[in-house]
């Protein structure tokens, strides 16, 4: 939070003086923020914030990519995350019949890989299917139509899961053994480290995909100007489908991570998580993938920070307050460009 106004001034690039300070501020502000947060929360909560942030960041990426490419707030995206968690718990718990943690690394590793693989594939497929059936026919329709459709899809997904698994929490097998890595006096759960590493590597992979591959270039050009991209021979339909595929797969991964970390899932988990992840996407500058990841972590810190200060019940309200503040003061987000945004 404290980083917000400072960065906004630095990112504005209006004041000539700022030009020389900008790169420095870009490094100093986050560093100060992290050190301050660490000092304030202590190591355990700091890692906890990173873990939560990683989950939000993974979900936020899907929002930001889809918004970037077809300017649709995909309300159903939060529910993709929730379904990802259910796919994972169904696969691990009901199909493989696992319940507790697995300490044998030789068994654990393939199981984890399989869980991510299954959830990401299934969710990716569902994401593409939804896009084909519900959103694609409405391309070019008035803006309201796909938004309403998206909210409808969100309700459908929630209620399908509720009919199948009931309105209460369902247990998800916590197969990752709970042991701590001790660094000095700090005890950090190995699971958290695993989650952060997995999430970060996915984000790096996504960034490489977008910047280095042909498909990534197609995505960027479609987002910048769909008609021009089409004229240049980009297959728009396929590009949009792939965007949904990747976004949904990342949400699926976030679902797996959520299951490992918290061990329970409920049909309406996606609602709150989706709202927070969207806030993260706006905070980072919607359409900007790096921004979404950054925003996710910031939201994680805000939420855990609120808990540390004893305001855990107010978590959602605080996140919402952040959303409104960002929209008032810097609607294009931390990493978005400010020029051209008209009141």
């Amino acid at each position: 939070m404290t980083a917000l106004p400072a960065t906004s001034e630095a990112g504005g690039a209006r004041v000539p003086m700022g030009a020389s300070l900008k790169p420095l501020l870009r490094l100093v502000v986050p560093a100060v923020f992290l050190v301050g947060a660490y000092a304030f929360m202590g190591p355990e909560q700091f890692v906890n914030a990173l873990t939560r942030g990683a989950i939000y960041a993974l979900i936020a990426l899907g929002y930001t990519m889809v918004y970037g490419i077809i300017e649709l707030i995909n309300f159903a995206h939060g529910d993709m995350f929730m379904m990802g968690a259910f796919v994972s718990l169904t696969f691990l718990g009901q199909i493989l019949g696992l319940t507790g943690s697995i300490t044998d690394i030789a068994r654990l590793a393939p199981l984890l890989v399989a869980a991510f693989f299954v959830s990401m594939i299934v969710m990716g497929a569902i994401g593409v299917t939804i896009e084909r059936l519900a959103y694609k026919p409405l391309r070019g329709a008035p803006r309201l139509a796909p938004l309403i459709t998206a909210i409808g899809v969100s309700f459908i997904l929630q209620n399908i899961v509720m009919l199948k698994y009931g309105p209460f929490q369902t247990n998800s097998p916590k197969i990752f053994p709970s042991f701590d890595i001790v660094i000095g006096s700090a005890k950090i759960p190995a699971l958290s480290v695993f989650i952060i590493v997995v999430a970060l590597s996915m984000m790096v992979a996504l960034q490489l995909f977008i910047s280095r591959t042909r498909l990534g270039r197609a995505m960027r050009s479609t987002a910048a100007d769909r008609d021009a991209a089409q004229l240049m021979g980009v297959n728009i339909n396929r590009t949009i489908a792939i965007t949904f595929l990747i976004g949904a797969a990342l949400a699926g991964a976030a679902g797996v991570v959520n299951g490992l970390q918290y061990g329970v899932s409920r049909f309406d988990d996606g609602f709150q998580a989706g709202l927070k992840a969207f806030t993260a996407a706006v905070l980072g500058g919607i359409g900007n993938t790096v921004g979404a990841a950054l925003g996710g972590f910031i939201i994680g810190f805000i939420e855990v920070g609120a808990t540390v200060m004893g305001f855990s019940r107010w978590g959602p309200a605080i996140v919402f307050g952040v959303l409104v503040i960002v929209l008032v003061f810097r609607p294009s987000g931390l990493l978005g460009q400010q020029l051209g945004e008209r009141a």
Binding site: G68, A224, D225, G287, G291, S332, L335, Q337, G340
Partner: peptide, 8 residues
């Protein structure tokens, strides 16, 4: 769209 281009 052009202003957004700069964002990514």
């Amino acid at each position: 769209a052009t202003t957004e281009e700069g964002q990514r």
